[in-house]
Amino acid sequence: MNNEPSNENKIRLETIDLSVFYGQNPGVKNVSLQIFDKQVTAFIGPSGCGKTTFLRALNRMHDLTRGARVTGKALIDGTDIYDPKIDPVTIRRKIGMVFQKPTPFPTMSIYDNVVAGLKLVGIKNKSLLDEVCERSLRQSALWEEVKDRLKTPGGSLSGGQQQRLSIARALAVEPEVLLMDEPTSSLDPQSTNRIEELIGELKHQVTIIIVTHNMQQASRVSDNTAFFYIGNLIEFNKTTKIFTNPDQKRTEEYITGQFG
């Protein structure tokens, strides 16, 4: 296994021997990985390789899965996110998530969708909410398209717009890290392109981790790539290295389509 650090950037998130079990079965085995600040890290690998399981472990999503158990450490800025004293809600504010399918609250207005996270923690100041709504929609490159209809339901937007709305909602609480689980797999090429451009812009502000089935997407958007196979981290390297001359034979076999 190769865990070459990508560069001199600060480490934002780090796992040490992190394993995720479903019952007795490990879905992810002893993964040690460093996620660098304000860079995009892509997780690739065949279905069932553990990439999404690992991603979900990074903001304690497995707390909600019956029979799931996480061992090892996951640190954000040196603090263990699995520390029993830490509230998972606090963690999820720091580490936001965008899912495969857009997840707007369909009947809730665009505006309310964006500020839902803030309202949840009791923020009611109208001018603050307005400000956050506009900032988040601008960050997610949706503002120009929806600024005149903020009161219409989130469900009225197109698939690509809904996904950008989901991103705006995740950004509204100012996360440090954004986890994206196949964020474009249900979108058409044009919407996919918008999201990929957005990732390129957002990485200057947040640290992004993206799980993708689309290897070209990983090569287009990420700075570093981690290749997972049967629950193991096989190789973690700079994306340019992975896609031109990977260190591990299995990585090469996978990305050139010889298995998976």
Partner: peptide
């Protein structure tokens, strides 16, 4: 095909 790795090289 947008080849990568050994195929690209």
């Amino acid at each position: 095909y947008q080849p990568v790795a050994i195929d690209l090289r």
